[in-house]
Each structure stands twice: as structure tokens, then as C-alpha cells.
């Protein structure tokens, strides 16, 4: 089964349709998703500012990685849960969204950055916990993190705009390629066009 067929099936399940069409549950889920940014992206940014050596330099880095990160992780769990629910409400629309695809790529970049920082850079942290500015690898991790998460937030917000929605209007070639748009004339999948 192709992803396209899988998401078509998913979008036609009763719970997906119910969530998509609900008057309050969808906006409520979306609000939780956005407001949790304040805790998730907010606390991640504070750590990045410390890693860059531009803020909170009187506190050791392990103070943030040890005491703030549990909050960042819990908030991330809420973001992923609500994000998956929102995706489930309109899977095919997001699958063919240029901005959603960009968001997923940036999420992967941010994730790899976190992984490299935790498994490699952070191993020697005892030597530079209170040093300002921190070593180059830590500052690079902070810049990549700030840029990737900012990109995730911006592209996530732009998913709501349908300028490049190939299920609604004909699109230029690059959009058709990037969003894997169905060929013109192909039978259009049901229940997705005209999504708000």
C-alpha cells in the first residue's frame, strides 16, 4: 500500500472525519498544540541562548540540561500527541502540503542535532559547564537548534495557508514535484478537497 493510499484510507475513517469536522475538539487540539510551544520551544530556546553564551551565563549549562529539560521533554510529548491528532484529522491534505513536508524535514534536522549533542558534544560537558563562551561544537548545536525549531514553527504556521494546495488549484511544476501532487485528471481522493 502506498502512503497516498494509506492516508486516503486514514482520512476516511469515521474518527478522522469526526475530528476534522468537529466544532470545538479540533480548535481545542490546535490551541493546545500552539500554546505548548511557549513551554517546549521557549525552554529549548533558553538552553540554546545559554549554549551560545549570549544569555544566562551565570548559570552552569547542566543546570538547564538537568533541571529544565524534563519540562522540555514533557512539553514535546504534548506537541507530538496533539500534532499526530491534527495530522490524523486531515492526513492527505498534510501529506500533499509543501509546508508540512518542509516541517517534517526540519523536524528531522532538529532531531539529529539533539542526538549529536547528547551523544557526542555533551560527553565532555564537565570541562566547559561554566565556561563562557562554550566550545564551538556547542555553539553550532545551539544555532542549528534555533534555526531548525524556528523553521518548524514558521512552516507549521504556514501549513494553514493553501497557496500551494494541489488538491485545490493547479500548481507550478516545482510544487507538483515537492508535494507529490496527483497527476491532473487522476481521480481525486474523496473527503479532502476544500479542507479549511
Amino acid at each position: 500500500m502506498s502512503l497516498e493510499a494509506f492516508f486516503t484510507w486514514m482520512g476516511d475513517t469515521p474518527w478522522s472525519i469526526a475530528l476534522h469536522e468537529s466544532q470545538y475538539v479540533w480548535p481545542f487540539t490546535e490551541s493546545v498544540h500552539v500554546l505548548t510551544l511557549a513551554l517546549f520551544a521557549g525552554s529549548a530556546m533558553l538552553l540554546d541562548l545559554r549554549l551560545l553564551g549570549v544569555g544566562f551565563t551565570q548559570f552552569p549549562i547542566t543546570f538547564f540540561t538537568g533541571r529544565l529539560l524534563p519540562w522540555t521533554r514533557s512539553a514535546f510529548a504534548v506537541m507530538v500527541t496533539t500534532g499526530l491528532a491534527l495530522f490524523y484529522a486531515q492526513p492527505l491534505t498534510y501529506y500533499h502540503s509543501v509546508f508540512f513536508r518542509l516541517k517534517v524535514i526540519l523536524l528531522v534536522v532538529a532531531g539529529v542535532n539533539v542526538l549529536v549533542f547528547h551523544t557526542r558534544t555533551q560527553r565532555t560537558i564537565a570541562a566547559w559547564d561554566t565556561v563562557t563562551p562554550p566550545p564551538r561544537a556547542a555553539r553550532i548545536a545551539a544555532i542549528v537548534s534555533l534555526a531548525a525549531w524556528a523553521g518548524v514553527i514558521v512552516s507549521g504556521r504556514l501549513v494553514a495557508y493553501n497557496w500551494f494546495d494541489c488538491t485545490l488549484h493547479a500548481q507550478p511544476a516545482w510544487v507538483n514535484l515537492a508535494a507529490d501532487c496527483p497527476a491532473p485528471g487522476a481521480s481525486s481522493p474523496t473527503g479532502t478537497a476544500g479542507a479549511p
Binding site: V34, L37, A38, L39, F40, A41, G42, S43, A44, M45, L46, L68, W71, W149, A150, I153, V154, R157, L158, A160, Y161, W163
Partner: peptide, 24 residues
């Protein structure tokens, strides 16, 4: 066409850093 969404996205980025600074 672009300005409102782009300003909105910046508003959201600032929400994140404001939220972080307040909640910390």
C-alpha cells in the same frame, strides 16, 4: 498575500521566547 502569514509566524516565534522567559 504573504505579509499577514509571515507576521503571524514571527508573532508565534516571539510567543515561544516570551513563554520560555515567563515560564522559566
Amino acid at each position: 498575500i504573504w505579509l499577514f502569514p509571515v507576521i503571524e509566524a514571527i508573532h508565534l516565534l516571539a510567543l515561544s521566547s516570551l513563554g520560555g522567559a515567563v515560564l522559566l
